[in-house]
């Protein structure tokens, strides 16, 4: 009697735990289904290629889509080289000294700073002090600072998996430190570093708060013509639509979210593909 009683409790507890895993996943499913049901009817070719409009049924996301693509390209161009460079420094040159420790503490703390605070930093430093205005440049630099800690941490992990024997083999063959890094260490760690960078960039694609803080425009009827051009981005356009009381605009927001999620899905699929290809080789 005693035994079965205990087992019943244990079974009930396992069931409860499984329930706790499945409920959030069910929420994810409901969320995606809800967005698709709301927005699928609105997701037409003209929605992708039209300018925003005061009339919900004519409005499109072209400037937001183009703005997001430029923004992400620029963000990646700033953040990926600097992030990988910082990771190489910390992992290959750093050693155990005060500077390395200080940088590590900083990166750990920066990863926990709310994204809207980065927006305030960007507003003061890039928009005003550097006088870049509410441009793609200001947005991209702000987002680059935001995702740098993610890229650095992921790249360091990739570098740490390269066996030390390979570095020592290079030195034994007479290579300098940089030659070993450039020709052996970095190529081996590259897939891991790229995967981390792609995931970091996909985080930047959905970021809204820092762009609002730097004052990105919400109603843009032109395409950006260079890095100093004012811009809007997909999440901003979605926020603008979801904040309006008219239900037709909320439907536009749902269609916009579908586009945003599709882009994120592509980036994540690319990251998974790279990771798998890399795992197969090693």
């Amino acid at each position: 009697m005693y035994r079965t009683g205990v087992e019943k409790w244990e079974k009930a507890f396992i069931g409860l735990c499984l329930f706790a895993v499945l409920v959030p996943l069910a929420m994810l499913f409901v969320l995606l289904a809800d967005v698709v049901m709301d927005g699928a009817g609105r997701l037409t070719w003209s929605f992708l290629t039209s300018l925003p409009s005061r009339k919900a049924e004519l409005a499109g996301i072209k400037p937001a889509l183009v703005g997001s693509i430029y923004l992400i390209g620029l963000t990646g161009a700033f953040a990926v080289p600097v992030g990988i460079g910082a990771a190489i420094y910390l992992e290959e040159y750093g050693g155990d000294n005060w500077l390395t420790r200080l940088i590590e503490v900083n990166i750990a703390n920066l990863a926990g700073v709310p994204s809207i605070i980065y927006g305030l930093l960007g507003l003061e430093i890039f928009v005003r002090f550097a006088n870049f205005g509410q441009s793609l440049m200001s947005g991209a630099l702000t987002l680059a600072l935001l995702i740098l800690p993610i890229i650095i941490v992921a790249s360091r992990e990739a570098l740490a998996t390269v066996p030390n024997g390979l570095r020592e083999g290079c030195y034994a063959l007479g290579s300098t430190k940089w030659q070993a890094i450039r020709q052996v260490v970095v190529p081996m760690a590259l897939p891991g570093m790229l995967t981390g960078s792609i995931l970091a960039i996909s985080r930047a694609i959905g970021e809204t708060a820092p762009l609002i803080a730097i004052g990105a425009l919400t109603y843009v009827t032109f395409l950006p013509d260079g890095p100093m051009s004012p811009f809007t981005a997909l999440p901003i356009q979605i926020f603008n639509w979801v904040s309006r009381p008219q239900p037709e605009f909320v439907i536009n927001a749902a269609a916009g979210i579908m586009v945003l999620m599709a882009i994120l899905l592509m980036f994540n699929a690319l990251a998974i593909y790279l990771r798998q290809k890399y795992q197969r080789r090693s």
Binding site: V82, G85, A86, Y89, N106, I125, T176, W178
Partner: peptide, 29 residues
């Protein structure tokens, strides 16, 4: 160590030090 290597190291270190300046920037602003 050839001098280009030392330049490379300085550039890489600057990438790392940027995180310190980000923190300082946030606090100062």
């Amino acid at each position: 160590t050839p001098w280009p290597e030392r330049v490379i190291e300085i550039v890489l270190r600057a990438c790392g030090v940027l995180s310190i300046f980000t923190t300082i920037g946030i606090v100062l602003v």
